[in-house]
């Protein structure tokens, strides 16, 4: 059996159409699967959603909601984005079907999540490292020194934003005891108590 040029052309065309359709579909799927509503459609993400709602990062400086992807996926559509999107997507699906929400150990997922939070994602809002996100107040003196260091003054630290700024949007129970997280923890506990009270009320 042999192929004719016509057949090749048809094949190429078909492949081309498929490719374009594939890219469009992928892009659509990537875009759709990066929405907060998609992320939180899985049961195991509920806890993260609830934590985010109580966190200082629930809303950005102009009061619009911050999505999962704003922090957890790199900006733009370059290779950084594609690789992380692919990796995390496959990993999440795998974990979703192999583990139950209760068996997920957040001590292990924490470093993975931190690994892929890009500095550029943080600096999309916090572009002035010496002021708060609303650019109203100066940050603390210690903060300024630390950011000097981040910017390469006095010897660079080579650390990412999230290496120092932990528990910005999520607070696993084992981190609640930390002094710096007290405010966040208090809000979470209050919210949980509210939910528990409502559930109890509903049951009666």
């Amino acid at each position: 059996m042999s192929t004719t040029p016509r057949q090749i052309r048809i094949t190429l065309l078909g492949v081309g159409i498929l490719l374009v359709a594939g890219i469009v579909a992928t892009a659509a799927f990537f875009s759709f699967s990066s929405t907060t509503s998609f992320c939180t459609s899985c049961h195991e993400m509920n806890v993260h959603k609830e934590e985010l709602a109580q966190s200082p990062h629930a809303k950005d400086y102009d009061e619009s909601a911050i999505d999962c992807a704003d922090c957890h996926l790199p900006r733009g559509l370059g290779p950084r984005y594609l690789s992380v999107k692919t990796y995390l997507g496959v990993k999440d699906v795998f974990v979703h079907f192999t583990e139950s929400p209760d068996s997920i150990d957040r001590r292990h997922s924490q470093p993975v999540a931190r690994r892929f939070v890009d500095d550029a994602s943080c600096q999309a809002c916090h572009d002035d490292l010496y002021k708060d996100a609303k650019k109203e107040k100066d940050i603390s003196e210690i903060g300024k020194l630390a950011h000097d260091n981040y910017n390469g003054k006095d010897g660079k630290s080579y650390r990412l934003c999230v290496d120092c700024h932990t528990n910005m949007a999520h607070l696993p129970s084992f981190d609640r005891r930390l002094d710096i997280n007290q405010e966040f923890a208090a809000k979470l506990v209050a919210a949980e108590q509210l939910v528990a009270a409502e559930e109890q009320g509903g049951a009666q």
Binding site: R80, N149, D154, Y158
Partner: peptide, 14 residues
């Protein structure tokens, strides 16, 4: 692009 561990840099000269 996303190293698992970051090289520890110099300590903050404060």
């Amino acid at each position: 692009a996303f190293p698992v561990k970051h090289a520890t840099g110099t300590h903050l000269a404060v």
